[in-house]
């Protein structure tokens, strides 16, 4: 396997990051780092469909919240279930919704597809808001265990570790796609769908793979959220911030490579977190807006694009 050394490097990097966290031993550091890593996962997931395949998904919150609420459901039914299993279930649920959405909407192109995904977010939010079992509009409480399983220490460390593991999986998948026939097929679809089809690319099948993977990973990113916030209501689970960030981070970092969402998430996520504690918790949203405008004008290929050779 060609990808094995890369995966080992990723795991090593994740281990070093986690060890640093343990050494600093500050629970705020874990809370902040969790958010950044969550955005790497979310941005990379969005990029599989939006960056590689060229279908802009505005309905990020639908998939993210499906992951989060599937954890709420599991917490109510089988609270003893380990978190990684909940993440897996959340991913499968969101992936299935991704597959269904893809099947219904992928005959739509460009902006019409994007509007359909926006509608999906509204539909899912309405359904969840009216579903009493998961708390409806009141929201649901999820009690976090006091001590982290396996590793000991605060539970947030465990949440961070799970998200870090998820990040390794998602990045390895994204990079593997880029170097495979699948990635070339995605690019062909993005550049010219009719020409792709004429070159033998099964466009519908590939687009369904992209929506399923993208949706599934977004759901996985959302699954630990109830344990992170301990109180989840539709307004926070479906917050527009998730969608804006998931789109802005690959755009700012660079959409053509797996590195882009990492750069974007670390830069924007880190900056947001810094501003949240130094200036105000509202100004961090403004930052995304300003950065987006600057990058769309000055560096449409993102930060990674600035360093790639000029073709």
């Amino acid at each position: 396997m060609r990808g094995v050394p890369f995966i080992l490097c990723l795991i090593a990097a994740a281990a070093v990051i986690f060890a640093c966290g343990r050494w600093i031993d500050n629970s705020y550091a874990f809370f902040a780092a969790y958010v950044v890593v969550q955005y790497i996962v979310l941005g990379t997931a969005w990029n599989i469909l939006g960056g590689y395949t060229g279908y802009v998904n505005f309905g990020v919150t639908a998939f993210f919240a499906i992951g989060a609420y599937s954890t709420v459901v599991l917490y109510k039914l089988v609270p003893a279930l380990p978190l990684p299993v909940m993440v897996l279930v959340g991913g499968v649920m969101a992936g299935l919704v991704g597959l269904g959405t893809g099947y219904l909407t992928l005959r739509l192109r460009g902006v019409f597809f994007s509007i359909a995904t926006l509608a999906l977010a509204v539909v899912v939010q309405t359904l969840i808001t009216n579903w009493d079992f998961v708390g409806g509009a009141r929201g649901a409480y999820v009690l976090r265990p006091r001590v982290a399983p396996l590793i000991g220490g605060e539970y947030v460390q465990y949440l961070f570790l799970v998200m870090l593991g998820l990040c390794v999986i998602v990045l390895a998948t994204a990079r593997a796609i880029e170097r495979s026939a699948l990635g070339y097929g995605f690019t062909a679809i993005r550049d010219d769908e009719a020409a792709a089809e004429a070159s033998g690319v099964p466009t519908l099948k590939l687009k369904l793979i992209a929506t399923t993977l993208s949706g599934g990973f977004m759901g996985m990113a959302g699954a630990p959220l109830p344990y992170y916030v301990t109180y989840l209501d539709p307004a926070s689970g479906f917050s527009l911030n998730y969608a804006v960030n998931a789109i802005a981070m690959p755009l700012i970092g660079g959409m053509n490579s797996w590195v882009g969402p990492i750069v974007g998430a670390v830069l924007v996520g880190g900056l947001q977190e810094y501003l949240r504690v130094t200036i105000s918790s509202a100004v961090n949203v403004l930052v995304v807006g300003v950065l987006l405008v600057v990058f769309v004008i000055a560096a449409p290929q993102g930060i990674v694009g600035l360093f790639q050779r000029k073709k």
Binding site: A181, Y184, T187, A188, D192, A194, A196, P202, N256
Partner: peptide, 21 residues
């Protein structure tokens, strides 16, 4: 209707990957 973001080489790679292979 070329694939605009791919080099000429990769433009030809797509049909090889998806037909011959």
């Amino acid at each position: 209707r070329p694939f605009g973001s791919l080099s000429l080489m990769d433009n030809l790679r797509i049909p090889i990957l998806y037909t011959v292979n």
